[in-house]
Design a protein around this nucleic acid. Structure first.
Lengths: 142, 142
DNA sequence: ATGCCTGCAAAATATTTGCATGTAA
DNA sequence: TTACATGCAAATATTTTGCAGGCAT
């Protein structure tokens, strides 16, 4: 399986998505966009995406993986989830929701927003404005 | 100001705390414990504690700062707060509570537990057990 | 005396960046 | 053609670790 197996319609769709985000449609970006957005919501790390890319017969450098993830992030195509100081996680689901994080594994699970809403959000301190609320529920294997 | 300015009572108190945690009472640990626990709840990074230690006329290496923070963490004297992949934060308040994090600054603010409790905590997926719930409210300067 | 601590420097890890080359528009 | 992308390697930043010497118990 590789990028040449994609249909013209798939490529057009991804190209449009990239251009709508202000990014040029290039082969590495198309392939990474396909991996990221082609099969529903998912979570990746730079490393997991790099390995997937190679399995997809795409020769991208790690720098391009990082650069692409950061560009997609800036463009609002991805969301970053900070749960582990060892590694950055990226979520293709950019809507408001929260996460389970399994300690010791490299794995996140989405929690729909309605299953974990807050009773009340405290006011931001004077001079600051709220930019986001992240809830992380940490799990251990039983 | 340096560690020799501490009273015998202060030193005894900190020594007891260290020994109760299963750690030997050494000069670097006493001084760091004084900085960490001597003035109410606070948040530090390895770097901020390192600078404070030097201002306190304590010559500790960065390795000792990191090792000590990790030992205190393992002993339950500190809690780690994961909000930023650039750096680790340690909180001397180990009770259940949440945080404001100011984007672009190196600063955390505690939120008392009763100001931000969840309506409901979702069940852990089969095979896992809940280990903690972290709420981070991100702020930007207005 | 023994085992835990510490400092120093080197290693390990994740991520970013400079620069020359390549490619989309 | 021109500006943006990419690959490679080197740089950066944080944290961890190996080892020799020091200190608490």
């Amino acid at each position: 399986m590789n990028i040449d197996a994609l249909t013209t319609a798939q490529i057009e769709h991804l190209s449009d998505k990239l251009r709508a985000a202000g990014l040029r449609s290039t082969k590495p970006r198309l392939a990474l966009a396909h991996l990221l957005f082609g099969k529903g919501d998912r979570h990746v790390t730079a490393e997991s995406l790099y390995e997937e890319a190679r399995a997809f017969n795409l020769s991208v450098s790690q720098a391009t993986i990082y650069n692409t993830l950061n560009q997609f992030l800036d463009a609002g195509l991805l969301r970053e989830v900070i749960v582990d100081h060892a590694r950055s996680y990226f979520d293709t689901n950019v809507s408001n929701h929260h996460h389970f994080f399994i300690e010791g594994e490299t794995r996140l699970i989405d929690i729909p927003l309605d299953q974990v809403s807050l009773k009340a959000v405290p006011d931001a301190p004077e001079g600051y404005e709220l930019s986001g609320v992240d809830v992380v529920i940490r799990l251990n294997a039983r």
